[in-house]
């Protein structure tokens, strides 16, 4: 049974394991490959499993859909228009609201952007570990507690740990965006081996359902939101896909 748990895909259709334990972040993705959480993550997961507090689910969240997913007709987006869409996508992916938790091999989230002053590693010696949720040391959810979906102003306080109606975690290792170039992120995002084996429509749906991603456009606390809007970003992803996912290096 335990082995089964860890065979859960860490990159594709089950990016998250939902926990009724609202303040406990989910073991999600190991990022790199096997899905191993390490002994500590293992232990925490075991405790949760055997105490009956953990359920595996293919549903990422019960949140209502926030955006319309309506891809342009095939062949209706030129490569040039696709590249323009990519340029806007890169603005979002490289923005601190997104990139700070897309740190690749590093298990240290970053603090950067206009609301943080000097770029620096996340305080408190935070180490997300191979579990990407801090299971080996300190769970992200210790501070980034999980809030109710209908509590809209939960992040109003400046400098407080942001909260969403989902368990907080670092992005998978493969999705390395912090400090990466447009070409590097473009190559990663269009490659099924490094994007969770997703089509562009599936990436748009991922954006629709992952509430941490929604937070990027409504961060609160004086933080600068990601550029454009969630709907515009989804539209760009879909248009980029229809254009054949062109990258600047092509």
């Amino acid at each position: 049974m335990i082995n089964k748990l860890f065979e859960v895909s860490m990159t594709r259709s089950l990016p998250l394991v939902s926990l009724p334990f609202r303040a406990l972040p989910i073991p999600l993705t190991s990022g790199r490959s096997s899905g191993s959480l390490g002994s500590l993550g293992f232990l925490i997961l075991l405790v949760a499993v055997f105490s009956g507090t953990l359920t595996l689910s293919t549903s990422v969240t019960a949140a209502e859909d926030k955006v319309v997913i309506n891809p342009p007709a095939e062949g209706s987006v030129s490569q040039q228009e696709g590249l323009q869409a990519w340029a806007r996508i890169f603005e979002v992916a490289s923005h601190p609201r997104c990139a700070n938790c897309h740190t690749g091999e590093s298990d240290r989230p970053m603090w950067s952007g206009p609301s943080y002053g000097k770029t620096r590693v996340h305080g408190m010696n935070v180490q997300a570990g191979t579990s990407r949720i801090g299971a080996e040391t300190l769970l992200c959810g210790t501070c980034h507690t999980t809030k109710s979906e209908d509590w809209d102003n939960a992040n109003a306080t400046p400098h407080a740990a942001p909260r969403v109606a989902m368990n907080w975690a670092l992005a998978p290792v493969e999705a390395h965006w912090f400090g990466q170039t447009s070409e590097q992120i473009c190559a990663q995002l269009r490659n099924p081996e490094t994007n969770g084996d997703r089509t562009m429509r599936e990436i748009a749906e991922h954006l629709n359902h992952d509430l941490i991603l929604h937070w990027a456009w409504a961060p609160g606390g004086g933080r600068e939101p990601a550029p454009y809007s969630l709907q515009e970003h989804v539209n760009d992803i879909l248009a980029w896909g229809v254009a054949g996912t062109p990258c600047p290096q092509d």
Binding site: F21, A23, L24, I44, V47, T53, G123, M124, L138, L139, G141, T142, C143, H144, T145, K147, S148, W151, A154, T157, P158, H159, A160, A161, R163
Partner: peptide, 23 residues
């Protein structure tokens, strides 16, 4: 009051939580 110091740490179902951050 903003999860920066840990003085308010409690256990919730055995896991540490900053109680100033949990409604």
């Amino acid at each position: 009051g903003i999860a920066q110091c840990g003085a308010c740490t409690v256990h919730v179902d055995g896991f540490v939580v900053r109680s100033c951050q949990l409604a």
